[in-house]
Computed example of a mutant assay.
Amino acid sequence: MNLFLDALNFLFDPANLTGTNSILSRLVDHLAYTGLSMAIALVIGLPLGLLVGHTGRGRNAVVAVSSAARALPTLGLIFLIILYTGLGVGPLIIVLVILAVPPLLAGAYSGLEAVNRQTIDAARAIGMTEWQILLKVEIPLAMPLIFGGIRSATLQVIATATIAGYVGLTGLGRFLIEGLALRDYKLALAGAILVIALALCVDAILALTGRLVVPHGVARGLARSTDKSDAPTPRLHGRVSSAPSNP
């Protein structure tokens, strides 16, 4: 309990909020690593996932590559890249991008695959082009899963960016790593609290953004299948006379 109180005192001490190695400075660095990594991962993963989901081509290869990327040891990968490129922000960004791409891919192609095929066939039947089908039909209906992939990838990147301290960079993970190295567990706990708080705040912001981005009809589950089994049973109004029975 005393350790937790000491960590809170460190976090709320005005002397630790501003300065070169302050909480605010390292928070900005942490967000910069996350933002840059997510921007690159979105450029790579989202179009590829949409292409695979729309065409159905290369699905097995994408699933295999994304599964393999998730199994890579993050810390070992960053040290391997550093051996060839040297210290710097580059190796960290490469590792974070590799970590972020699989959830983006999975959210994009699984979201498009979940769209009712009859809806797409109906769009083609009325003369919509493939681009119009993708932009006006598939993406809006798949937006919950697409945005879920973005949300998952962002939280994974925020959590994993703490390894920046292992390679001489800053960020909130620096408090955690310095605290463990110096056996200053108050500092280590403060770093862990900061990373957790940042992840929760970003998750809340993304959840609110998701409500604004996802179409209301899709969010409320109003987009239903057009199968005959889902069609409402017609009701006959008035009395129905029965056929006369055979004598």
Rank of each mutant, 00 (worst) to 15 (best):
L46P: 00
G149V: 08
F12S: 11
P234R: 14
D203E: 15
G19S: 05
L87S: 08
D184N: 15
L42F: 11
I126L: 06
L212R: 12
L155H: 06
W131T: 13
N16L: 09
V195G: 09
A69T: 11
L182R: 15
Q118P: 03
F10Q: 04
L48I: 10
V240F: 09
L83V: 04
S225L: 05
M38R: 02
A197K: 08
P91F: 02
S66L: 01
L189C: 06
Q156D: 13
K136G: 08
L155E: 07
A108R: 10
W131R: 14
K186D: 05
L134H: 06
L141H: 07
I133A: 00
Q132V: 09
A164G: 12
E130P: 02
V157L: 08
V62C: 05
D227M: 11
V115R: 06
G179E: 01
I133G: 00
L212I: 05
K228V: 05
L75W: 05
G53D: 04
Y33Q: 06
L135S: 14
R59C: 03
L99I: 12
R59D: 01
L87T: 09
D13W: 12
A15Y: 00
A64C: 00
M1Q: 10
A164Y: 06
A199F: 08
L24P: 01
L141F: 00
G19E: 06
G19V: 06
L212T: 06
G90I: 06
K228Y: 03
F147R: 02
T119C: 03
L200R: 09
T74V: 15
R124K: 13
P14Y: 03
R174E: 02
L206S: 07
P244V: 15
T20V: 14
R70V: 12
L75E: 07
S66A: 15
V167N: 05
A142F: 07
A188R: 11
G165Q: 09
V195Q: 09
G173D: 10
I146C: 10
M1D: 13
H216M: 08
D121F: 01
I133P: 00
V43C: 10
P102M: 10
A231F: 04
S225P: 01
G19F: 02
V240N: 00
A69S: 15
A69L: 15
G90H: 01
G149E: 06
